[in-house]
Simulated assay, not measured.
Amino acid sequence: MSGTPGGNLLTDHPELYEARFPDPGRLAARWAEDRLRAHACGPAVLDLGCGTGRDAAHLHAAGRDVTGADLSEAMLAHARTRHPGPAYVRADLRGFDLGARVFDAVVCLDSALLYCHTNDDVDGLLRSCRRALRPGGLLVAEMRNGAFFLGNTELLDAPATGGFTWQGTTYTSLTTLRVDRAAQLLRRRRVWTADDGSPPVEQHSAWRLLFPQELRYALAAHGFTVLELHDGPGPRTEPPWREGAPAPAGTADGDRLHVVAQLRTSSIPRRA
């Protein structure tokens, strides 16, 4: 490990990411596939912010024609080697152009959408999604819920510890979260230590805190109609989503937010 701030231990080392977040049941990908089937979506799917490729590969195995896109070359190299099947391309979710390729759905899981920190970033993402989708196509996303932090401090009150062991080395993290209200960001400081004697790694990251009605407004401005918007059940809620779960209630009190939006076929978006 390196003691230099900046970088990210897990995303720079995808094998560590998968060790820290094992997902043998592919719960997020199964939830996404369930929503695609529920809305009779066609087979061509763009997995935006695909990371290590696990979810993209599951959607591919389910019969989808999948393209995984990510900004991290390390993640893409890992995905091509360890989770083959989908096509993998490098793209910045804040603004991308995949040429003439048109998709039936864009899937954006695990708060990847919230790396759009500014309004311009959000506009760039939705503009790019609109360009990449065929009329009637779907945007299926899962993320942290900005509204959860209105009065809830359980994730902010004290630093959280975590850890995992990989190839004989134990990694331990100390994570502190704070809300930057002016920027509307959830900022994270995380310090990793390892028992192999290497120096600590300090890293900083942030997620945009989008509120449900703010998300509806942005989607509508780019030509989307919201079909679903709710806190749960979902792949990272308690209790977690399961096949055959009842229809979501439409509440937004939990710490996760799930959205399915459809690109309108005949309206002109209010933003270019």
Rank of each mutant, 00 (worst) to 15 (best):
L10P: 09
H13G: 02
E15T: 07
E15G: 04
E18H: 00
A19T: 11
P22H: 01
P24M: 03
L27I: 14
R30Y: 03
A32T: 01
A40E: 14
A44W: 06
L46N: 10
L48E: 01
C50K: 06
T52C: 06
R54N: 05
A57K: 02
A62P: 11
L71D: 11
A77D: 14
H83I: 09
P84S: 09
Y88K: 03
R90Q: 15
L93P: 03
D97R: 08
F103E: 05
C108W: 00
S111E: 07
H117C: 01
T118L: 05
T118V: 01
D123W: 01
G124R: 06
L125C: 15
R127T: 14
S128Y: 12
C129E: 04
L133K: 09
F149A: 10
N152S: 13
P159D: 06
P159M: 04
T161Y: 00
F164P: 04
W166N: 11
L174I: 11
T175P: 03
A183V: 01
Q184W: 03
R190S: 12
A194N: 11
E202G: 13
L209S: 00
H222Y: 04
F224E: 06
T225L: 12
L229R: 02
H230N: 08
P240D: 00
A249V: 13
G254P: 06
L257M: 13
A261S: 06
A261D: 03
